[in-house]
Simulated assay, not measured.
Amino acid sequence: MRGADSYSESLFTTVKLEDFVPASHPLRPIRTWINEALAKMDERFSAMYEADIKGGRPSIAPEKLMRAMLLQVLYSIRSERQLMEQVTYNLLFRWFVGLSIDDPVWNHSVFSKNRDRLIEHEAVTQLFNATVEMAKARGLLSGEHFSVDGTLIQAWAGHKSIRRKDGNDDDRPPENWHGEKRSNDTHESKTDPDSRLYRKSNAAPALLSYLGHVLTDNRHGLVVDVHTTQADGKAERAAAAVMLGDVRSDTQRITVGADKAYDTRGFVKECRALNVTPHVAQNLKRNGGSAIDARTTRHAGYEISQIKRKCIEQCFGWGKSVGPIRQVMVRGLAKVDQVFTLTMAAYNLTRLRGLAEVRP
């Protein structure tokens, strides 16, 4: 018998959001892990709102805020306005964030303002560190063999925003650059002053950019440290030294794989001073020759590091195809760092979920 095309709502319902989410949904383990990490951050969240204890309207709960920010990365949602729209009608998103069916959804501008509060207290950094601790507790990190690399993050600013720092071109049309050379020393973007003109190779155009740096563990390619800097020719090696300093051990020698851009005598010397063996790809075309010789390359571990270091591109590829770091929609180094760190935390969570299916 043909069913009737009718619609009627019940006055009351006892259905819970939990009932709409399949038991096998990939967000279920991620939400469990996130809730465990957020529970350990309770003191930090309390410190964030100590100044507001005298009064005022309650803000967005930081736990809900961070779960919503993760959803934005995991589901490639391009803006806060669109995120709030989807949380309004998407029951899965409401369940993940922690909103009931009847709870009102925040205004997108209020959401952005509360998100910026997290920067001062480094809440996103602590969440990222929690994902690393989860991997360590599950025995997924080697703690001995690492890879390091950086990637270009295009800034949310265009070439027309680049003007002279001394203001001598204020009466000149922004698109007219004929006969004038632009340089980071003399010019800056008025839209995003922290961004810098940078290009990865001579064949690529110079774009307003930042640089994101990651240190990954070679066992499963999980990210163990992140760093964001202004775009500079020496930033990759400087950031790598900082991250290696965070994971170094006085009692155990570790290795780090890297591409030819890290084959400089200064970086190799700094690695060895940190008790780190630099398994850097040899740049034989470099003036003066490679900083790595047969004392390093003759070992089997060097070849393994050169194979495993290419896995670092997976986190960059995921962050630019699924995540928002191909071109960030925020301005300023602090906000770009927050987006990059959150993206790498989300990448770790997706990797942990996949590894949990293989190793229950």
Rank of each mutant, 00 (worst) to 15 (best):
K190M: 12
L208S: 04
L207G: 01
D192P: 04
A203V: 10
H187E: 05
T229I: 08
R237Q: 15
H178S: 14
D217Y: 06
R199I: 08
A239L: 06
T228M: 09
D217G: 10
N218S: 12
H187D: 13
T228K: 06
T216D: 13
P205A: 11
D185P: 00
A231G: 02
R237D: 03
S195D: 06
R199W: 08
G233T: 11
P174Y: 04
D225T: 05
D232Y: 03
H220A: 07
K200M: 11
Y210C: 00
G212T: 01
R172A: 08
R237F: 02
E175N: 14
A203T: 14
A206Q: 11
R196V: 05
S201G: 14
H227G: 00
H220L: 06
V223A: 11
S183M: 05
H187S: 04
N176S: 09
K200D: 10
K200H: 09
L197E: 04
E188V: 01
A238S: 08
P173H: 15
P173C: 08
N218A: 12
R196D: 07
A235C: 08
R199Y: 09
L208C: 04
H220D: 07
H220K: 09
L215F: 04
S189P: 00
A206N: 10
H213S: 03
Y210Q: 02
V226P: 03
T191E: 15
L222H: 10
D225M: 07
D225R: 15
E188I: 01
A204I: 00
E188T: 06
D217T: 07
A204D: 15
L208K: 05
L197P: 01
K234L: 08
N218G: 01
L207T: 07
R199D: 07
W177D: 12
T216P: 02
K181M: 09
N202M: 06
A240H: 10
D225L: 05
T191P: 00
E180F: 10
N202Y: 11
E188F: 05
A206G: 03
R237G: 12
N184W: 01
K200S: 14
D185H: 08
P205L: 08
K234R: 13
G233W: 00
P173L: 13
E188S: 13
A238V: 13
G179V: 06
K234P: 00
R219H: 11
S189T: 04
S195E: 07
S209I: 02
Y198I: 06
S201A: 13
R199C: 13
K181P: 02
V223T: 15
K181L: 11
L207N: 11
R196E: 11
E188L: 11
S209E: 06
L211M: 13
T186C: 00
H187R: 04
A206M: 12
A240T: 09
Y210S: 01
N218M: 11
R182W: 10
R182F: 05
A238I: 13
K190T: 14
T216E: 12
D217P: 03
V223E: 08
E180Q: 14
T191V: 10
N184I: 02
S183N: 12
A203I: 10
G221R: 08
R196M: 12
N202R: 13
V223F: 05
A204M: 14
H227T: 03
V224I: 14
A240P: 07
